[in-house]
């Protein structure tokens, strides 16, 4: 697991208060929302904010690609890497 992947998993656990989940429970390829981790729309907003703050990047909420970028840990890691 890369540092970025690990960093993202810890960010998700902290920002969304997932007290009984550890980084090992989050699969890089599994969907973050709906099935998989089971996050909801409030989590989506919260995670978007946390990612912007933590990595000092800007996310255009109107962009159609946002949904893709937040689909899984792998997708999010690629997105963050491309913005840095």
């Amino acid at each position: 697991m890369s540092d970025l992947h690990l960093d993202l998993k810890n960010l998700i656990i902290d920002a969304l208060g997932l007290e009984d989940i550890s980084v090992d429970d989050i699969d890089n390829d599994a969907p973050l929302f709906g099935e998989g981790l089971g996050l909801d729309s409030v989590d989506a907003l919260e995670l978007g904010l946390a990612v912007q703050k933590h990595f000092s990047i800007k996310i255009d909420a109107d962009s159609k690609d946002v949904r893709q970028h937040f689909a899984s840990i792998n997708a999010l890691a690629n997105f963050v890497a491309s913005k840095q």
């Binding site: 409030v42 989590d43 904010l49």
Partner: peptide
Amino acid sequence: EILSPTHFS
């Protein structure tokens, strides 16, 4: 700072 959507709601 930008407000947390969870805390706000």
